[in-house]
């Protein structure tokens, strides 16, 4: 599809160039491209600024006009690790990886059941999964806090893991369902005619086709779990706190610590930005529950 659009674009521009009177369109695209680049860099600039500031000294971070040329230093990153971001990073990593694995373990068979071997009321089940994403988390936080407190699981990383798994499961089921539906029926039929068992069909026919989809789903779950803040700030403290909880420390200290703050923010954002760059083609599919490919 993209190819056809690009084809038409090139043919029209060559056609326009060939015509004498519409020479304007020769400079038009160039202007548009320049504009696009300016806008893109503008949108990206706060991120770039964060990364640049992370490599400054505090003195260089507070200048008017802002400093663009400076000698980069790792001082701030060292300071952030000295301030103890390490355990928070480890907690984030653990909660993200374990919850994502749990989501995959639960969602893959579920998605299989609602796509390739639909049972009765499949539609209702799908409806239920998606509806849990639409109920505001804030309405559940009070009982969650009370229950978690009662069973002595406050400030415990497994509490977050359970909640993150529940948070991402509906998205994963929907996303994976859309990948399962892309498996050609003919292949499945052929496998069953050849007498392959269900397990073998799944392993040797379905899995290779949907593994990019599983990977994309995992990346989406990683992004959401890593960035989650509401549960983390209300249910964890020094023991099980994740990176976003660590960042909260910077709003209470109103002092001049922008360079250090930027270093911490860079560390917090980096894993997800990388995951997201890889998954950018699938981001919309994940967030729209598979509605848009």
């Amino acid at each position: 599809m993209a190819a056809t659009i690009e084809d038409t674009a090139t043919t029209t521009s060559t056609a326009a160039r060939a015509e004498g009177p519409r020479r304007r369109s020769g400079i038009g695209p160039l202007l548009l491209t320049t504009l696009t680049w300016i806008v893109a860099v503008g949108f990206f600039f706060p991120v770039l600024w964060m990364v640049l500031t992370a490599f400054k000294t505090e003195a260089a971070a507070y200048t008017d006009p802002p400093t663009l040329v400076f000698t980069p230093t790792l001082e701030q990153f060292r300071a952030v690790f000295d301030a103890g971001i390490g355990p928070y990073l480890a907690n984030s990593l653990f909660a993200t990886v374990v919850s994502t694995l749990l989501v995959l373990v639960l969602a893959t068979p579920a998605a299989f059941a609602v796509s390739l071997r639909p049972v009765e009321k499949t539609q209702d089940v799908l409806f239920f999964f998606i509806s849990t994403k639409m109920l505001p988390v804030v309405a559940a936080i009070v009982p969650i806090y009370v229950v978690v407190n009662e069973i002595g699981a406050l400030d415990n990383i497994w509490t977050l893991i359970v909640l993150y798994t529940a948070m991402n499961l509906p998205i994963a089921v929907w996303m994976m369902r859309s990948f399962f539906l892309e498996v050609p029926k003919e292949l499945l039929e052929a496998a069953s005619i050849d007498g392959a068992s269900l397990g073998r069909t799944l392993r040797e026919v379905v899995l290779p086709i949907i593994s990019p989809g599983i990977f994309a789903t995992a990346l989406i779950c990683v992004i959401f779990a890593w960035n989650e803040f509401f549960f983390a700030v209300n249910l964890t403290a020094a023991n099980a706190g994740t990176v976003p909880v660590f960042l909260v420390g910077f709003i209470s200290s109103e002092g001049l610590y922008w360079a250090r703050l930027s270093a911490a923010a860079t560390l917090a954002a980096l894993p997800v930005v990388l995951a997201g760059w890889f998954a950018q083609n699938k981001l919309v599919q994940g967030l729209s529950f598979g509605a848009v490919k």
Partner: peptide, 26 residues
């Protein structure tokens, strides 16, 4: 480049806006 703001951890993004972007002086 354009996708990146969406990926930045919201807490980090909010901190950036509060400080390096919207600060009255710097």
């Amino acid at each position: 480049l354009l996708v990146t703001p969406f990926l930045i951890t919201p807490v980090a993004a909010a901190l950036l806006w509060k400080t390096t972007l919207l600060d009255p002086t710097y």
